[in-house]
Design a binder for these strands. Structure first.
Lengths: 192, 192
DNA sequence: GTCTATAGAAAGATAGAC
DNA sequence: GTCTATCTTTCTATAGAC
């Protein structure tokens, strides 16, 4: 057998990484399987050995993207929750996230796209959002009873901020809105 | 001349209304010109007497949608700014807006879609967002110096809240997030 | 498992009749 | 101005060689 199992799973991972990067930046319909496979270093014909359809790849890509989100992991040694959260906010609401990241946040980059897809994809999105908002709630300060709600609102603010900035045509406005969201986020995560 | 100028401009308006409704709900690529024209009561062939291309229709549709946004207009007689804003928030962050409106907010429904389009569309989006956030800033309370920034963050929160809710698969979560955004919006519009 | 080649469908845009 | 019919391109998905 000329190809190992490891080889196949590596190919699959490359396809997934390629899919996340391209779907996020250009949208589902603007990305062809040709492009995904070329970006992964293969040709179109090999695709169907790994996934059943383009739609399935989209759903799988979303799932795969979650685990790569830095907020999904615990704070590094010696960093407290508050500092961990603040660092995350700085990275999330940044030009680098908007323009350079290879693994941008799928919740912000693909919101509208997901809303137009079938239930399986939307279920995945729902699951990811819950994890995200709960994680934010855990890391913030203040009364326990309010935190889940504040976590959800903060999540909407962050996702909204990144999403609208991506649609803008003016760098100056992008800077302003990122800063405005930062400022509001800070007041949200402080105890009331 | 069997067709009046008025007839032509009425057709154009019907096409625009159809375009806004369909593009918002289903996304640019999931809507065919066939569908737009059928929804407007015509067939595909008539389209090119009104617009140069599908892309142009998209840009024109965005522009047309702005003027129909209730927040663009002044408060009715006897309603003060604070009450006008609160009513707008209630409508914006509602199930009706998410599921039933024929003229949903294009900023929330088409964010990701717009980000994937050419500069002309993004310029229009940028323009609309500025008007929206400035209008919110005008209607809210508190220190003048802070208001532009707070208006931008509030805009991001509202757009983000509606956008994510549209992607969810669980009605219960939709209700929670709408309420959470409402609560946060209220604290933002109050004087600090 | 990956390749090249191709089938088949969908949809944007155009032509010409009325 | 609007219609039907058609050209043309694009892209998903499949077939078969290596």
């Amino acid at each position: 057998m000329p190809y190992s199992k490891q080889h196949k799973s590596q190919s699959r991972e490359r396809i997934l990484a390629s899919a996340i990067a391209l779907f996020s930046r250009h949208g589902y319909d603007n990305v062809t399987l040709d492009a995904v496979m070329a970006h992964a270093g293969m040709t179109r014909g090999a695709f169907y050995n790994h996934f059943d359809s383009k739609q399935k790849l989209y759903a799988e890509g979303m799932k795969s993207a979650v685990s790569k989100n830095p907020i999904s992991h615990d704070a590094p040694e010696g960093i407290d929750a508050s500092e961990h959260l603040q660092r995350f906010l700085n990275g999330y609401l940044s030009q680098a996230h908007l323009h350079e990241s290879d693994t941008p946040c799928p919740m912000a980059f693909m919101v509208t796209d997901v809303a137009n897809h079938e239930p399986e994809v939307r279920e995945t999105y729902t699951h990811i959002f819950k994890g995200f908002s709960e994680r934010l709630a855990t890391l913030m300060e203040g009364d326990d009873a309010d935190r889940p709600q504040r976590g959800q609102a903060l999540a909407a603010l962050l996702i909204g901020g990144v999403a609208v900035c991506r649609a803008f045509n003016e760098p100056k406005l992008v800077e302003e809105v990122l800063a405005a969201c930062q400022a509001m986020a800070v007041t949200v995560i402080k105890a009331e």
